[in-house]
Design a protein around this nucleic acid. Sequence first.
DNA 1: GGATTGACGTCTG
DNA 2: GCAGACGCCAATC
Length: 109
Amino acid sequence: MSKTNYFQLVYEVTRQIPFGRVSTYGAIADYLALGSARMVGWALNKSFTAEGVPAHRVVNRKGELSGRNFFPTPTLMQQLLENEGIEIIEHKITHFECLFWHPEELDET
DNA sequence: GGATTGACGTCTG
DNA sequence: GCAGACGCCAATC
């Protein structure tokens, strides 16, 4: 059954994250009204099975690459973010609040 | 079918 | 201000 599973929604939102931007579990959870940021993290865990889902653009509330350990390589997440022009220090995003992106931003379109 | 886990977040001490 | 505990909801074992 189908589609529209809640984590599938997370894929869509994560996919909408602009280049050079990052989002948080809480923001997505709040936008999808999941009620729990854990659901987002868990959904992103399976995001590796779905292509086109830049899970590396999703970090925790502190801007830390909390899920880096779940990547094929712990450094891959940082590499991808740096590849987008985002500076990472100690697995933490610099100017995180500046790069922070909210799903509602594109809701207006 | 029950118990535990999980890429987090918020509250209380 | 920092540290620890609890809560969310679903999936997996």
